[in-house]
């Protein structure tokens, strides 16, 4: 029994670790898409954030400066996204796709040019990273059966970005449904004309949303390279931006459900390492690839309308133009 509990706690612990970048990217996408801007480019923003954070941290030795750099890089990408899709009224999807390639190309290219390590940034250690925080009494309570263990393993011992990610979700829900900004944000994603005729700038509101997106996804990227890992490597976002997007669709653009879906996807990620090579009763061995594909397959099934319907914000994907 004891060992099962430890096993489960460990899997849940890594679920949390793996879910954090998904949660941050998902919340980032939520602001953007609720404002009516489809964000295929989350993946690229995440990757750019990860690279900038690791590079800055490696050079300055400060994780916090790294974090700022991650946000700044994501901000730059969001800026391009906004310029193309809001100011120039271009296609949001195409510019998002472009951002993903831009990040994939630039991070490796600049990484090689600057650090000459085949696209890797130098190994980070100590203050160059966000290290685990031991919550009060965690060590003392460690020996207390079950609750103490859960507190020690699951709740305590994460880095500050992890805690931040779990705070972002309720804050987002509150902002979205309880504040003036949230009301306007939801309105501009549903019917920008209603916002325009109320005398509020659609352009400004959408850019504001993109700024929040950039901050969150930049932090998510920084988490990948300077909290979860000790440095940047090629394409380290590895499709997490897309998974976050899938989670957002799955959660029907609502913060609470989005958290649950991200945790579920994180859990799938966590178990795939554990079940490798293991045989289960009846079903036998489950291929790792089946678990890897599961989030995508589930999202396809959802999109096909077989389990509920995912209705996007009505104006998402459409640049706003005043018409005659």
């Amino acid at each position: 029994m004891e060992s099962y509990l430890v096993d489960i706690t460990l899997i849940l612990d890594s679920t949390v670790r793996l879910a954090v970048p998904l949660i941050l990217a998902c919340m980032a996408g939520l602001y953007s898409e609720r404002a009516g801007i489809v964000d295929i480019g989350l993946e690229g923003k995440l990757l750019a954030g990860a690279f900038a954070a690791a590079a800055m941290s490696a050079v300055t030795g400060s994780a916090w400066l790294g974090l700022l750099a991650g946000i700044a890089a994501a901000m730059m990408f969001s800026g391009i996204h906004g310029l193309a899709s809001i100011t120039l009224k271009g296609n949001q999807t195409i510019s998002g796709v472009a951002l993903n390639f831009l990040a994939a190309g630039l991070t490796t290219f600049l990484g090689q040019s600057w650090f000459k390590r085949g696209g890797y940034t130098p190994q980070l250690s100590g203050d160059q990273r966000f290290n685990p925080i031991t919550l009060p009494f965690a060590n003392e309570l460690r020996e207390v059966p079950i609750l103490g263990q859960i507190y020690y393993e699951l709740i305590s011992g994460h880095n500050i970005i992890t805690y931040f990610a779990f705070i972002v979700v309720p804050v987002t829900a509150w902002v979205l449904f309880r504040t003036r900004f949230g009301l306007r944000l939801r309105a501009v994603g549903e019917n920008p004309k209603a916002i325009d005729t109320a005398g509020i700038s659609v352009t400004r509101l959408r850019f504001q949303a993109l700024v929040i997106t950039a901050v969150l996804v930049g932090i998510g990227g920084a988490y990948l390279s300077i909290a979860q890992s000790a440095g940047f490597n090629n394409n380290m976002s590895a499709g997490r931006g897309y998974i976050a997007l899938a989670a957002l669709i799955f959660a029907k653009w609502r913060p609470g459900p989005a958290l649950l879906v991200c945790l579920m996807f994180g859990f799938l990620d966590a178990v795939q390492f554990r079940i490798q090579g293991q045989s289960f009763p009846i079903i036998g061995e489950v291929p790792v690839q089946a678990i890897q594909a599961l989030p995508y397959v589930l999202t396809v099934i959802l999109l096909a309308g077989f389990i509920g319907r995912a209705v996007a914000p009505k104006a998402a994907g459409i640049p706003y133009t005043k018409e005659r």
Binding site: T179, R180, F181, L183, R184, A187, A198, I200
Partner: peptide, 9 residues
């Protein structure tokens, strides 16, 4: 919408 009194709804 657009005529809110304050930041909170």
């Amino acid at each position: 919408l657009g005529a809110e009194d304050s930041a909170l709804l």
